[in-house]
Amino acid sequence: MRKLHIIAGVLIMTFAGVFYLKARQLSFGTIRSPGPGFVPSALGTILFLFALIFVLKSVFKRSLVHDTGNPWEGMDWKRIPFTLAILLGYALFLDHLGYLVCTSILLGILFWGEGVWKKWVAIVGSPIIAIASYVLFKRLLGVQLPWGFLTFLG
């Protein structure tokens, strides 16, 4: 947990630093008439200082948060980056492949990975659910979903 806190603290310091530097490029204005950079630079500075204190406290073993040991111990954590990568792929290919194809592939992978009781259920079920969900979102909720290369069907 301590390691995670130190890494998190450094990441927050970086985040605050980036915001501060970017805010400096904006007009700070004056106290009488604050500009667009006024609030973000103040917030960035305070956050940077807080994160620094957090890192120092974590380094010197003064855990600020109830320490429950290694949070990944005994966990199947490899599924997390895998799932996030699938979501990223979905985002990047959605406009090109369209909702139906992308969602069928996504659901197929997720059902398969989650241990559906029979694999054919994942293969056959995914496109059916994709079509059903398209109808649900499009008809009931009026969401515009992309057709991708299947535009000629739409």
């Binding site: 799932t83 985002a91 990047l92 969602t103 996504l106 989650e114 969900s133 515009q144 979903l145």
Partner: peptide, 25 residues
């Protein structure tokens, strides 16, 4: 295995529906 993909799908469509843009996903 039914619940998890359904929630993911709902999140994906929900985010996309805001602006019709993949950046939100």
């Amino acid at each position: 295995w039914i619940l998890f993909p359904s929630i993911i799908l709902f999140c994906l469509v929900g985010s996309y529906s805001v602006n019709g843009n993949y950046v939100d996903i």
